[in-house]
Simulated scan of single mutants.
Amino acid sequence: MATSSAIPYVLSDKVREAVANCKVLVVGAGGIGCEILKNLALSGFQNIEIIDLDTIDVSNLNRQFLFRKEHVGKPKAVVARETVLNYNPNLNIKAYHDSITTSKSLDNRNARNHVNRMCLAADIPLIESGTSGYTGQVELIKKGLTQCYECQPKPPQRSFPGCTIRNTPSEPIHCIVWAKHLFNQLFGEDDPDQDVSPDTADPELAADAGKLALNEENETDGDVQRKSTNLWAKEIDYNPEKLFNKFFQDDIKYLLSMENLWKKRKPPKPLAWAEASSHEGDSNTIIENNLKAEDMQVWSLSKCSKVFASSISVLKSELSNKNFLVWDKDDKPGMDFVTACANIRAHIFSIDQKSRFEIKSIAGNIVPAIATTNAIVAGLAVLHVQSIGRGIGEM
């Protein structure tokens, strides 16, 4: 019979008392947060608070095990609290459906920087953790004892020159970023850094690039150039045909007038609404994709044009009750719009088109989440919290 010489991990009475009395704030009820809450509830912690601004999506259910299908659409923090109480009804646990900062998302660098600075200012220990696929990290941060979250520079987030996005895309991600920018130009907050029109300041162009213009430019398009995209879209009542022809035909013709850009590149092909909606060149793709799940299909050009129109109709309706919309990968109309626009632009520039699933992963900066990695990292995080309790209990 095999035997084990492992020493049981036993907490002294003083440490147990310190653990029961300490207060823990869990920032985020996602994959790691759910595991941490369960571990805390089963490890003797009695005073827990959880904050998360997000609501539960179907895509969360495969790894955020505190949630079930009937919880979809409900606040993560509230449901997590209710579920954890099933593990230990005597917990003193509070839930906040709110943001730790003024930013919408908890799972970003700005939010982590904010929590780091607040903990340093209040001299409160911080357990910082995260996962990315099969890798993860857990770090104890304590003022005067360890380095802080911002002490070491983080790898810069990938970005692309504006002229590449607006003039010369060569990869699917360029088209996806452009489509997200177009969403914001039409429905979101005004941001001049996310302009989607041709960039006449492109360094590849001649000195007089700013003078380039199409002689056949009609009066309507001339008006567009003098107005913001959002204002013009409202004036035409978000007419999908006019929007389509502006971004995928007129702007592409304008780009073609910038001859220097196409001396060593394959030029784009302008696409009109009438041609796209009746496109018949992708019937084989349709037959092949009939066997795939909807999100795994690469949409035909005609379907992209139909989804473009239908998503605009829904987004226009949503905008009527708000000042602006915020793009969210889990919002179906917004995700449909970006998928359709990205693939239409990719077709124009002879770039491989992607399925809705692939575009969602790229647009949402999604790294596949692995439940086992989350569980390991969460376990280590709670061990760090217990070590803090041990230090307090043995003082």
Results as ranks from 00 to 15, higher is better:
I7P: 03
K14L: 13
N21P: 04
V26G: 04
G30P: 01
G33V: 06
E35K: 03
L40M: 02
S43I: 03
I48G: 01
V58T: 12
N62G: 05
K76H: 07
A77W: 02
T83R: 14
L85V: 03
L85Y: 05
N92V: 08
D98G: 11
S99V: 06
T101F: 00
R112S: 10
C119Y: 04
L120G: 03
A122I: 02
I124S: 07
I127T: 04
S129T: 15
S132D: 12
G136V: 13
G136F: 04
Q137G: 13
L140N: 06
G144Q: 08
C151Y: 04
C163F: 15
S170G: 11
E171D: 08
C175R: 00
K180V: 09
L186K: 01
L186I: 07
F187Y: 09
E189M: 14
E204A: 05
A207P: 06
T229A: 07
E235R: 13
D237K: 05
P240M: 07
E241A: 11
I252F: 01
K263Q: 15
D282N: 05
D282M: 10
E288D: 10
E288F: 15
N289F: 11
N289S: 12
L291H: 12
V298R: 05
S302C: 14
F308Q: 02
V314H: 08
L325A: 02
K329N: 09
P333A: 05
P333S: 07
P333Y: 01
C341S: 01
D352T: 12
Q353N: 13
F357D: 07
F357E: 12
S361H: 10
A381H: 03
I392Q: 05
